[in-house]
Amino acid sequence: MTPSLTDFIAGWELFRDPILCGLVAGAALGMLGVFIVLRRMVFISAALSQAAGLGVALSFYAQIHLGLVGFMVDPRLGALILTLLAASMLRLEPRGRLTREGMLGLAYLVASAGTLMVGTRISQEAHDIQAILFGTGVLVRPSDTTWVLISAALVFAMVVWWRRGLIFASFDPDGAKVRGLPTTLLSFAILGAIALMVSIATRALGALPVFAFSILPAMAAIALAPSPTGALLLAACFGALGGVGGYMLAFFGQFPVGASQTLVCALLAVGAWAIRMGLNPRSSSRLSLPRA
């Protein structure tokens, strides 16, 4: 039987945390996604979310097989460390025949294979590993909600405060460097913010919706926004809409949450591009192509 609005309201206590997580993580990742899309690094969040999965798996392994306890083996810390390690590796400039796409693929595959292999040794926690890989926004722990809120607040503050430098360095990195902007620091800051948000949100919501939040709302926003600041705001709104709308779709349609959130974000992106192409059929120039 299809659940009704009354059922939803009656279970609000249960749904509040996952909806809040979806809303806030969607908005923060949506905003960061503008930089991910502009830097042609759309698979970075996929690679980082897999690295977060491996970090969680290794933390459980350390607890179960090495008998370690305490903060040092907290799965969130494991996820953050592995994500930061992967992000710093991906920050390196590609050299010779090693392309950034190749590095992203390597990070994704090593992290995925590592997670599955470590997962076979921690069968007690297999449910957690599955949840991380494929997403489970149905129930979110209050502690995860708190961490998502704290991380998102840091990300919002950084992006709003540094937005002019971040945008300049994305549009014309050489021009920004010539004007003395700290482009390396700006690049690390944005990668650090992505790593933080992806690691925390992956633990709470799963890899699939995190990947979707960090790509699709930004694509939609870039299609419609007249200015870079407008794109950041619009991407945050679309991300939040994807997080909440996806949860509602999952509840009323009895679908998996992560997949529903991804679908709503995808519909927003497709809709935004349809509007843009409808308004100006020749203006497909914002579809991201490889840099010359």
Binding site: I167, R179, G180
Partner: peptide, 24 residues
């Protein structure tokens, strides 16, 4: 060499000219 997918208005671009160092 400039990225065509960044949604920049003319004013946004000229405004980058006043940035220097940590002015952002």
């Amino acid at each position: 060499s400039l990225d065509p997918i960044v949604p920049m208005r003319v004013w946004d671009i000229v405004a980058e000219g006043v940035e220097s160092g940590w002015s952002f």
